[in-house]
């Protein structure tokens, strides 16, 4: 049973939130994980999610927005079902990160932070994702794809398009 009367989240997520609010020395610590999990479920952090999370953690909505807007992984508008995040930071750049980004732009027909019309893919140029030694690297949602070439990237995209891609949550 959720502590919130009519949660906008699925029962599983609501239960997870109930627990998250209890494990820390300070309830507020659950804020960033909650925002992430909310985004994982809804696709972005909606106003309703902000309202519910602020209620759960006894925070002002403004407070939640202050925090939410700080972190680059959190978004307030929907992304595609598969958010393709291409790292172009130094190590990846040296091994073709930009080429990969341009390839994805052409392939998907969208730019940075764009979403394909069918809502399947979105594209983002991101800062270093901690895969420098396996560059160039891309994250699709939370899954890593290393040592890519445009050809390998096509295969990755094809896998997701066909519903074969891994979707870590």
């Amino acid at each position: 049973m959720s502590t919130i009367a009519s949660s906008i989240f699925t029962p599983d997520t609501a239960a997870r939130f109930d627990k998250l609010a209890t494990i820390y020395p300070l309830k507020r610590s659950a804020l960033i994980p909650m925002l992430l999990y909310a985004q994982d479920e809804i696709g972005f952090v909606s106003d309703a999610a902000v309202a519910e999370i602020s209620q759960r953690l006894d925070l002002l909505e403004l407070d939640v927005r202050n925090v939410l807007s700080y972190y680059s992984m959190l978004r307030t508008v929907p992304a595609g079902k598969y958010n393709v995040q291409v790292c172009t930071n130094i190590s990846c750049m040296l091994r073709g990160g930009y080429e990969l980004l341009d390839h994805c732009k052409n392939k998907l027909g969208i730019g940075h932070k764009g979403v394909t019309p069918d809502g399947l893919f979105s594209l983002e140029e991101v800062e270093c994702i901690g895969a420098c030694c396996w560059a160039p690297a891309v994250q699709v949602n939370y899954d890593f794809h290393d040592d890519l070439t445009p050809a390998k990237m096509d295969a990755v995209l094809a896998d997701y398009a066909a519903g074969r891609g891994k979707d870590v949550k």
Binding site: L60, L62, R65, N66
Partner: peptide
């Protein structure tokens, strides 16, 4: 009152009031 906050980060940081435009 806590009606003002800081949003975004870096050079996009901005002082923001408590009722966002969409609301």
């Amino acid at each position: 009152v806590f009606a003002l906050g800081i949003q975004n980060r870096g050079s996009s940081s901005v002082i923001a009031p408590n009722v966002p435009s969409q609301l």
